[in-house]
């Protein structure tokens, strides 16, 4: 199946799901159940990943800033860089692995064992019953999990700054307000939201339309993970680019 055909079908799929959302045609209970499931599965992994990502960034920033004697800026710079860029990107990568793989595997298995066909024959709408709740749950959960991951990465940064750079938490946070302003936080939110939508759409789509038995499920998982990551990278670039353009326009005016 050509890339453009898949892309087109994916967009149609997304529009269909949003149609259900607009009509409020879904079970709220089911959404909450899915939110709980997704969060339970991913919380530990996200916080661990976030913590270490923050730690990694701090090490690198410490080494560089030390050379320039600008260690005081460590907290501000590391936090800003993590919140704006590295944090959403890497944590979204992790989530696309966990939630993306989990959901596409689940839906894919249901598809190849004919449960989705059975649903239709027994009077249920599989999109309403299976896809829409998962889609909404993934968006809400991953948004929350990304935020939580960012918080953990800040913690990781503080911890590493203490151990590696000898910077106390106080010193670390001193310049944060200066470096991390409202625009950065808005950017971070936008990225998280956009990444969540890409993730939710991809894993539902590839899982729901999986075919070819057990190996087909595996293939659906691979496709989900790869295309989600590519989508995230592109979305990351677009948002950063737009933010930069806005910033330059504002600065110039």
């Amino acid at each position: 199946m050509s890339f453009l055909t898949s892309l087109g079908q994916g967009v149609i799929f997304l529009t269909t799901i949003l149609g259900y959302f607009k009509r409020l045609d879904f079970s709220v209970n089911e959404v909450f159940e899915q939110i709980w499931k997704v969060t339970k599965e991913s919380a530990l992994m996200t916080s661990t990943a976030g913590f270490f990502v923050g730690a990694i960034m701090t090490i690198q920033f410490t080494l560089q800033l030390n050379e320039f004697g600008a260690l005081g800026y460590l907290g501000g710079l590391a936090t800003s860089g993590t919140v704006r860029e590295i944090g959403p990107l890497l944590i979204a990568f992790m989530l696309s692995g966990k939630i993306g793989a989990y959901t596409s595997a689940e839906l894919g298995t249901m598809r190849v064992t004919e449960q989705i066909d059975a649903l239709k024959c027994l009077g249920a709408d599989p999109i309403r019953e299976l896809v829409v709740p998962r889609f909404l749950a993934i968006i809400l959960s991953s948004f929350f999990l990304l935020g939580f991951g960012l918080v953990m990465s800040i913690l990781g940064g503080v911890f590493m700054a203490r151990i590696f750079g000898g910077i106390s938490p106080e010193e670390y946070f001193r310049y944060v307000p200066q470096f991390v302003h409202l625009g950065s936080i808005v950017l971070s939110f936008l990225k998280c939201l956009l990444f969540a939508i890409i993730l939710a759409t991809n894993c539902s789509f590839f899982g729901f339309y999986a075919s070819g038995g057990a190996l087909g499920v595996g293939r659906a998982v691979v496709k989900t993970a790869v295309i989600t990551m590519v989508g995230i990278v592109i979305a990351d670039w677009i948002t950063s680019q737009i933010a930069d353009v806005i910033l330059r326009t504002v600065v110039q005016s």
């Binding site: 249901m110 064992t113 004919e114 449960q115 066909d117 059975a118 649903l119 239709k120 024959c121 027994l122 009077g123 249920a124």
Partner: peptide, 27 residues
């Protein structure tokens, strides 16, 4: 129409997340 024409699939296709009673009561 699906109440009048029923299909039994090649695989059992029972719903994993529902127990036996809920599976039978589904339709």
């Amino acid at each position: 129409i699906r109440q009048k024409i029923g299909m039994v699939f090649q695989q059992p296709a029972l719903f994993d997340s529902l127990n036996v009673f809920e599976n039978l009561a589904f339709g």
